[in-house]
Design a protein around this nucleic acid. Structure first.
Lengths: 149, 149
DNA sequence: TATTGTTATACTCTATAACTATA
DNA sequence: TATAGTTATAGAGTATAACAATA
């Protein structure tokens, strides 16, 4: 079971047999590449997730926090930065004035579109060895696991 | 590490369609659970990986660093702690006296076995919705992706 | 001159708790 | 009394550079 270690290949050691480790490693590597691709846009993986989540729904900061397992104080900082950059707006929720409804500005939409384009490319390259059928299967299994988790 | 999530289900938002995001999220969640299971052993995900890697081969710190994309200075700290705990030994490599050959002590082996047992349980629970055939497929695809990456 | 491992330091990230305003 | 959001601060984790020993 001792294989030579090539560039990005999975390390040849005891953990090779563990699907859980492989899953973690793959998740780590794709995040790394996504962050490389997003660096020119001054986005990290996390800020990209938040931007995407805010797009479709008028989420509160609390909801963003739960969605991505982020500390609420971290969300404050992220939204502060987005507000300053002009990508996101805070509006008090009419029904519950403690909460904010977060929304994207046109500039925010524009950055998000560019980010989506870049991460699409990363994803395609990363899943490169899987054919269309495999990719559909892979996605189905991930959804199944996450739905159950 | 942030707080544990109660709902592990994938968030219903724009990123749902992205296999890359689902992969990252699954990798994050399984690490979170592994770390919970290893906490009584005073291991983190990373220190567990290192312990497992050191078991089969007389790796150098440099090799450990590359294997898991860790900063070399971080590896120093990890091995320092393992040495103090009596789990790992450093021996100068005979052929190249700059390097250490790292090796597990019997106590290190014992902790690693217990850690393996616990992470096996986590992995089984996490992949719970997949049948044996799906698990084999899932693992095959991960290996394919990582081999290409 | 390059590489392995180490130390020191600065920086970033995260966790904790206390606070406000609303409910 | 509880919740959403904020602020301040301390602690942990990480990156950077300089260094010694060896190649």
């Amino acid at each position: 079971m001792a294989r030579p270690t090539t560039a990005g290949a999975p390390p040849a050691h005891l953990l090779d047999n563990r699907t859980g480790y492989l899953l973690h490693r793959a998740g780590f590597l794709i995040l790394q590449r996504v962050e490389q691709a997003l660096e020119p846009l001054r986005l990290t993986g996390r800020t990209f997730f938040v931007l995407a989540a805010v797009r479709n729904h008028a989420l509160s900061q609390q909801e963003v926090s739960q969605l991505f397992t982020l500390d609420p104080t971290t969300v404050v900082t992220i939204i502060d930065d987005f507000e300053e950059a002009g990508f996101v707006t805070r509006r008090r929720n009419a029904a519950d004035r403690r909460r904010y409804d977060l929304a994207l500005t046109p500039d925010g939409e524009k950055v998000l579109r560019e980010a989506m384009k870049r991460t699409d490319q990363v994803e395609n390259a990363f899943l490169g060895t899987l054919d269309d059928k495999d990719r559909a299967e892979f996605r189905r299994m991930l959804l199944s696991i996450l739905g159950d988790a």
